[in-house]
Design a protein around this nucleic acid. Structure first.
Lengths: 213, 213
DNA sequence: TCAATAAGTGACAGACCGGTAACACCCCGT
DNA sequence: ACGGGGTGTTACCGGTCTGTCACTTATTGA
């Protein structure tokens, strides 16, 4: 019996990660077994264990893969609006909002894993924390360089809104509170801009100098 | 061997629900077995199944118990500030914020269950959706009666903030973005009050009364 | 070409899971 | 006193889970 892997990586390791991410998302981490993952990836359990050592390590590696993907997305966002940090912020929000539209959306892989993996010593924990912390710092920097006074507070508020939208979608669906995510976020940014008063011009230059480094 | 159940209900059924809620929260729904729950509740698996029929039904019943508890909390909040809906809103936020301070906080049971129970036909799904929908309507009503123009948007924004705070706490801990939840929420309410313009006199008074408590 | 490395196979261990059966017990109201 | 319902106990079923072993086959690079 021959398998047909569309855009799948050729090497087993890549296929396993790709398949595992998909199945973890669909069934939950505890809801799918390594055997099923290996079979869906067109390989077998032994090869999976030779590459990852344990299911927990596979989970951690999948989340590292997610982090890499998001990192790529960020470089694209920066390339699309070089120097204009506020525009980058808006594009980022738009990306997140669009992502939530998808039918099979199951929220944030990182946050879901944090909910499901109750063991605080799980190897994926560090990955999750690092990722979320980096995301927070990046957002705060964007806001700061965008000339917003209370940049940290804005960043945290936006993060809470996004995390909330993703988790709310799984509770009450796409027509629930998460439907207004974009409006909420834009309104929050607007109110912070008004608080900061009028110095967005200099802020823009500051961003460019920062990028030059 | 005698057990010592502090404030536990006397009847097995009550003890099972109470214990199950605690263990589901600590270990995750899929992370604890019915046998362990029954034993921790000072009874056995057979009694558990005679009362609930299946683990899935036990989960649903636990969430119904959560909903009952929150309902009680709401009646207390209303009793504390009768008629002053904005004050009720603030107290509700404060309760949620205080709850998140706890060390063993694992976020919202409902949302966590929605993340963990990937099967859309799970009996707990209906409980979750009903609960979240009711919560949303109640918040919107409070905001509307508090004289806020865009009451639905404010309600949804606050819900997203709260859900986000709860899930973020599990990813990056209490010192992450969720630490600013109260500040974020108050700022959002404030900006909505300003937008509403015309009739903030009554609303503003309500805010101050809430702060005074 | 040939050797080293990667990948596939089937079986198995040991644990745990949800759920059921049969039977003994104990308390409580009549 | 007695009868019945709620409860406790033990054993068991079939299934699934993670992880391992021994062995065969394919791939690759020198």
């Amino acid at each position: 019996m021959e398998h047909c892997f569309g855009l799948m990586p050729v090497k087993p390791r890549g296929r396993i990660i790709s398949t595992a991410r998909e199945l973890f998302r669909k069934c939950g981490i505890r809801g799918i077994g390594v055997d099923a993952i290996a079979e869906a990836a067109g390989t077998n359990k032994m090869t999976l264990y030779r590459h990852f050592g344990s299911k927990d390590e596979l989970v951690a590696e999948c989340l590292r893969d997610v982090a890499r993907e998001v990192e790529e997305m960020w470089t694209q966002v920066e390339a699309a609006h070089p120097g204009d940090t506020l525009a980058q912020l808006h594009v980022w929000l738009r990306c997140a909002a669009d992502y939530k539209i998808q039918d099979d959306c199951r929220g944030c892989d990182m946050a879901n894993a944090a909910v499901e993996l109750t063991d605080t010593d799980h190897p994926a924990r560090q990955v999750i924390e690092d990722f979320k912390r980096k995301q927070r710092d990046r957002l705060a920097r964007l806001a700061r360089e965008g000339g917003i006074d209370d940049a940290e507070l804005l960043a945290d508020t936006l993060i809470l809104l996004l995390e909330g939208a993703r988790v709310s979608r799984q509770s009450v669906g796409a027509e629930g509170p998460c439907a207004h995510f974009m409006t909420s976020a834009e309104a929050v940014i607007e109110s912070f801009l008004h608080k900061s008063g009028g110095k967005p011009a200099r802020a823009k230059r500051a961003t460019e100098t920062a990028k030059a480094s």
